[in-house]
């Protein structure tokens, strides 16, 4: 059983008190350049998922608490949570360094744009 902790209201509970929302940090192409979205970009946004065996960045919702969405980093093999962080935040720096796939690029861009970890 997973024990989840909401970084917004501090509520802690098992997975039935929360809602798993899938992969985090997926860019929505329409938010950036609504006039020029290719079918491939829209496919990537809607369906393509980075599905690693290991460190996974994901979204959760505090269903029975404050109702807010937040982020978590979790290992999909051991099911161990590595961090909980806010919806507008980036994960701790050491986790960003372990990130692979599209997340590595995403974190690089966000850090370059001045977002604090």
């Amino acid at each position: 059983m997973l024990v989840v902790k909401c970084p917004v209201c501090g509520a802690e509970g098992d997975e039935t008190d929360f809602h798993a929302g899938g992969q985090a940090h997926v860019r929505r192409p329409a938010s950036h350049d609504p006039a020029n979205i290719s079918d491939a970009e829209q496919r990537d946004y809607l369906f393509i998922r980075h599905n690693p065996k290991g460190l996974h960045f994901e979204r959760w919702r505090c269903d029975r608490g404050c109702g807010k969405w937040f982020h978590a980093a979790r290992d999909t093999l051991t099911l161990e949570f590595k961090a909980f962080y806010g919806i507008a935040e980036l994960p701790p720096r050491e986790l960003m360094e372990q990130a692979n796939g599209p997340w590595a690029e995403y974190f690089r861009q966000r850090l370059a744009a001045g977002t604090k970890p």
């Binding site: 059983m1 997973l2 098992d14 997975e15 039935t16 809602h19 798993a20 899938g22 992969q23 599905n51 065996k53 996974h56 994901e58 979790r74 999909t76 093999l77 051991t78 099911l79």
Partner: peptide, 14 residues
């Protein structure tokens, strides 16, 4: 299914 990504071949009690 459990709702979260999982490679552990071990499901949850809920």
């Amino acid at each position: 299914t459990d709702s979260y990504n999982n490679y552990s071949q071990r499901g949850s009690f809920p």
